[in-house]
């Protein structure tokens, strides 16, 4: 498998991480080496093996439908970059 420069650009955009043009080749190379390691997996026959998502074979616990949280806007917004009238501000969203 070969990770192309286009692949790196595509995943960088999906992940919303700017990658400077000059770094793309290097990053593609690094990822290439890591995926070389990962490729070892592909040789293993896993037919019939159930994927394991959790360490314990337990099911979801559910909480009762009750309000347990109160308004903490002031504290929460104290660490926000830009706030006005109780709203978080971001560059204009275009739908």
């Amino acid at each position: 498998m070969l990770l192309s420069v286009e692949d790196v650009q595509r995943i960088a955009t999906l992940a919303r991480i700017a990658v400077p043009e000059r770094d793309i080749d290097r990053i593609a190379g690094e990822l290439q080496a890591i995926f070389g390691l990962i490729e070892q997996m592909q040789a293993v026959d896993t037919r019939g093996v159930e994927p394991m998502a959790h360490a314990q074979d337990v099911v979801l616990r559910l909480r009762p439908d009750a309000v347990s949280e109160s308004d903490r806007r002031e504290q929460f917004q104290a660490v926000a970059a830009s706030v006005e009238a109780g709203l978080y501000l971001v560059p204009k969203v275009i739908e």
């Binding site: 830009s82 006005e84 009238a85 109780g86 709203l87 978080y88 501000l89 971001v90 560059p91 204009k92 969203v93 739908e95």
Partner: peptide, 14 residues
């Protein structure tokens, strides 16, 4: 997302 103008920004209500 509230698109009224906050100095060219959008406001987010969660």
């Amino acid at each position: 997302s509230l698109h009224e103008d906050f100095h060219g920004m959008s406001g987010i209500d969660l």
